[in-house]
């Protein structure tokens, strides 16, 4: 974040007061992250673009519902994105392949927008790289459970069927995966 720039929480509070310049600032910070996530889930650029538009529209309408004490703004934002994209997946009953065989990168090229904020884009790439590295460091069976749940929107029963394992195994892998991911990212930040 640039020196003197407003925090995400401050911008969200301004959006709640109908400040459209604050929403534009948040779009510049997170538009590419939101698009990347929607594209990863849907594998359809047109549908992903719709999700981007709807995500920021919901931020505009519901910014006052964001509670900083419950987590960072980016988490709240990406949860909206993920829910919208998974809803489309479930509604259309499509299950695009997850890029699990390539955890370090997706199939989509970064297409810079000349008007985009370059330092913010670089920061987003750094975050993505760090988190992908933490994800890639997980045992593959734990990573697979997290990916099937988060990026494919499968329920625990569907995951158990997909990996041909008992529900208890799914529970354990999800718990261990999340705990290791949290630990790895905490160490990275420290």
């Amino acid at each position: 974040m640039k020196e003197g720039a407003k925090s995400d929480a401050e911008l969200a509070a301004a959006v709640a007061e109908a400040d459209e310049t604050a929403l534009e600032e948040l779009y510049d910070r997170y538009g590419s992250t939101v698009m990347g996530l929607a594209l990863r889930i849907l594998a359809d650029p047109g549908a992903a673009e719709e999700v981007v538009q709807e995500t920021f529209w919901r931020v505009w309408q519901r910014a006052s519902a964001y509670r900083p004490e419950r987590g960072v703004f980016a988490g709240w934002l990406l949860r909206i994105t993920r829910n919208l994209a998974i809803d489309i997946l479930r509604r259309e009953k499509i299950r695009p392949p997850v890029a699990e065989s390539d955890p370090a990168g997706g199939a989509w090229e970064l297409q810079p927008d000349p008007a985009a904020d370059v330092p913010e884009a670089v920061a987003a790439l750094h975050d993505a790289g760090m988190i992908r590295a933490a994800l890639a460091a997980l045992p593959s069976e734990q990573r697979k459970v997290l990916e099937l749940a988060y990026f494919r929107g499968l329920t625990r029963q569907e995951i158990a069927a997909a990996i041909a394992a008992p529900l208890g195994t799914v529970h354990t892998r999800a718990r261990l995966g999340l705990e290791k991911l949290r630990q790895a990212l905490a160490e990275e930040i420290v």
């Binding site: 538009g31 590419s32 992250t33 698009m35 990347g36 996530l37 594209l39 990863r40 889930i41 992903a48 987590g71 960072v72 980016a74 988490g75 709240w76 990406l78 949860r79 994105t81 993920r82 955890p103 990168g105 997706g106 989509w108 090229e109 970064l110 297409q111 810079p112 927008d113 985009a116 884009a121 987003a124 790439l125 975050d127 993505a128 988190i131 992908r132 933490a134 994800l135 997290l146 988060y150 990026f151 991911l181 949290r182 990212l185």
Partner: peptide, 11 residues
């Protein structure tokens, strides 16, 4: 929530 950042950003 961090998993959302694992996707490569696409402008």
């Amino acid at each position: 929530d961090e998993l959302g950042h694992a996707a490569e950003p696409v402008t």
